[in-house]
Structures are given as structure tokens and as C-alpha cells.
Design a protein around this nucleic acid. Sequence first.
DNA 1: AACATAGGAATCGTTGAACAACTCGACAAG
DNA 2: CTTGTCGAGTTGTTCAACGATTCCTATGTT
Lengths: 226, 226
Amino acid sequence: MDNAVADLERDRSRLGRSSTAERVADILRDRISEGFFEPGQRLSEESISEALGVSRNTLREAFRLLGHERLLDHRLNRGVFVRILSAEDVADLYRVRRVIEGAAVRRSPTPRALSLIKEAVADAERAAARDDWHAVGTANIRFHQALVTLNQSPRLDEAMRQLLAELRLVFHVMKNPRDFHEPFVERNRRLLELLEAGRADEAAAFLDGYLDHAERLLVHAYEPHT
Amino acid sequence: MDNAVADLERDRSRLGRSSTAERVADILRDRISEGFFEPGQRLSEESISEALGVSRNTLREAFRLLGHERLLDHRLNRGVFVRILSAEDVADLYRVRRVIEGAAVRRSPTPRALSLIKEAVADAERAAARDDWHAVGTANIRFHQALVTLNQSPRLDEAMRQLLAELRLVFHVMKNPRDFHEPFVERNRRLLELLEAGRADEAAAFLDGYLDHAERLLVHAYEPHT
DNA sequence: AACATAGGAATCGTTGAACAACTCGACAAG
DNA sequence: CTTGTCGAGTTGTTCAACGATTCCTATGTT
């Protein structure tokens, strides 16, 4: 009995999940990261609150949440806009990635984290084999998210989640997803092998080159666009 | 003329700062970090909105902001409470510090960052000389904030700011601030010297020991208290 | 034609009131 | 001692209103 009750406590986190504002934020977050709302677009309080059937007050709470995640840009008296990342923003995001992911690969990997990583690599390979580059992108994001779990820090996991959501704002400028994702499928595999072999320093160096390359691809497609 | 105009731009960030909700959040944040509101305490919407002379709706926006900074704990239908950090939280915060500050000290320091660090060290020493341990604590926080600027990343600066605000929630359990802060005045100076000498690896190792020690002091004073 | 200015429409910021939904403790019944 | 039930107190959410701010446009000046 005591055991069963103790088990239940793990489900408690699922209870707190409600509140209209949070659900609205979830919807908007999805829309933004799938590109339905484009960077720079203004989100009108009235039209959206009407479309979603919630009050302006509730919608504003959702806007605040997303503003804090840097997905929305809240300009006083002018409304909220889908964030436009500058080249400097992209550079900063990759700076943070080098720090967080770099620290991750230097740790001795846990079996749990390794299996997450392995899964993401396999998913990416399968998706690439069937030319589904969107799925490759998704798996690739999961790969990096899994890398960060090596740090064993909930806060770093959360930070990485936000960081990747922010990066998705700019992934959409890559009109040819294949060029952007293909080179990394193989590298993910290679990085996994280095981790499994316990060659942390090599993995870290490899990752640095990896991120440099990804950043260059991104700003190259991005910069002229602004 | 152009020069004067360029100068002005630095003040622009202060302009955007308005919105009642944000100012309310600023007030509450200060109150929390100074210990006026104690961890676990419930913040009533009605009494606080009345005391500050703002509407409940506006206050709720402020609560959301602070919730996102992890200073408040928002429990559905039960209100907001000043966050109580668990020992696991403290451990995680130090995990993050090791990653972010560790990456910082490995960089080749810029003159700008070095002067910030130097200033913080000197302030701490002056405050220690006059037995003002509260001021030592403040200078110490500035020291670590300055360390992080070595990363040259606005996002990491911001993350560190939030992290330290969160840690302040638990600093208050140290009833004897001297014991907690004194050992680190000298270490800050030592770390600065290592940085100036360009001995990055030694600095990193030294910092790890530093953070281990600080964490141990903290959880030791903290754990039995829960 | 270029520029400044003055409305005016649209939208945001904030408030106050209202009511449903929910929590929690007290008290009664089994 | 456990299990319903009730009621007071708070939170969650909506709605309507009004002042403040921004943006657009039409008007008028040089």
C-alpha cells in the first residue's frame, strides 16, 4: 500500500498542468516553431483572443510567457511580434551551445543518456534513408537535447529546450532542408562513437567543429536575407 | 553630434522599461531577494494588489514573470508561494555554475571583463576590512557575475543573473554571513591572479574546488533546516 | 513637390466588477 | 477514526470600459 502511494507521487507533476493561459502558450509556441506565424509578424490581441475563444487578459498572460522564452518580442503599446533573430543572436545561441553541449560531452556518459542519444541517431538515419528531411531535423534536435542530458541537470535541459525553440525561429530560412541536415547525420553517429569509446576530449573537439559548421551554414543562408 | 547621439543609444534600454506589471515584478523581486518575503510564504493576490495599488490582473502578470524566473511557485487554484529550494535544487544550481563559470575562466580574458572582476575583488576586500559582511556578499555576487562576462554572451549573462537570484533564496539560511563569505574573499583574489597570468586550466581547477566548497557550506547549513 | 501638422481610427495598458471553479478546514454521520 | 458534506475564502477567467499611445491619412504650408 505505502509502495503504491509512493508510486503515485511521480504522477503528481501531471496534475499541475492546466491553466488556460499555459495551454494557449503551448498552442502559440507550436504555431511559431512550425512557422505558421512568421518572424516579424504582429500578433493582435483582439483577433487571436477571439479566434481561440479566450479573453484578452488570458491571452496576455500567454504572451508574457512566450516573451520570457524570447519567442515573442513585446514592444510597449505596440503589441507583440514574433521574434526576429539578428545574426548576432544566432552567434550568441551557438556560443551558449558550445558551452552547454561542450560540458556535456566531457562527462562520463550514463547508460540512460547514451540510449537516448543512440535512439536519436538511429531515427535520423532512418529518416534520411527515406528522404524525409523534416524528420531528420526533428531527430537532430532530439540528438542535441539528449547530449545535454549528459550534464544531469534539469536546468540545463530546460535551457537547451528554450535555446532550440529560439533557434527554430531561424531554421525556417533554410529553404533546402536537405543541405542543412544531411551533413550532420553522419557526424552524429561519429560523435556517438567517440562518446561510447570514452574519448571525451576528441568528442569535445569534434563537437566544436560541428557547431562551427552548423553556425556558418545558418548565418550564410540568413544574413543576406535580412 | 554623431557622438552624442551614439551615446544616447545606450540609454535606450531604459526607455522600454515601463509597464506596470514589470515594475511590480521588480518590486517583488527585490523584496524576495532581500528576504522580506520568506520562502514558502503565500502571496495573496488581493492583499498585495491592494497594497501596491494595482489591479489583480496586473499583479498576476507580474506573478507570471517571477514564476518564470523560478522565484515564485505557482500552484493552480492555490496561489503563488515564494519558492522553496530543495537540496536537489541547490545541487543543480551549482552544477550549472560549474558549467557556465568553468567555461568562462577558460577563455582568454578581455580587458573590459578583467576590470569588472578586479573591481569586484577590491570591493569585497574593502567591505571585509570594515566587517560589512552583507556588502561582501554583494561584491561576491558581482564577482561571479563579472566572471561570466568572460564568455561574451548576453544570454549566459542573463542566465547567471537568474541563477544568482534563485540562489539568494537560500543564502538567507546562513545566519552567520561571515562564515559563509569570508573564505572566498581571498580566493577571489587568487582566481583573479590566475586569470591575469593566463593560467586557464589552473583557474578552472581552482574554481571547481571553490564551488565545491561553497556548495558544501550551503547545503550543510540548509539540509537540516528542511 | 516636399514637408510639417493635425486629426482620427485602431490598438494597447489597466482597471474594476462579476461569477464559476477550486481548496481547505470544520463539522456531522457512519 | 474514516468518510461525506457544507461553507467561507481564493483563485481562474471573462467582460466592458476608458485613458494612453501609435500609426495612418488628409490637410495645409512653403
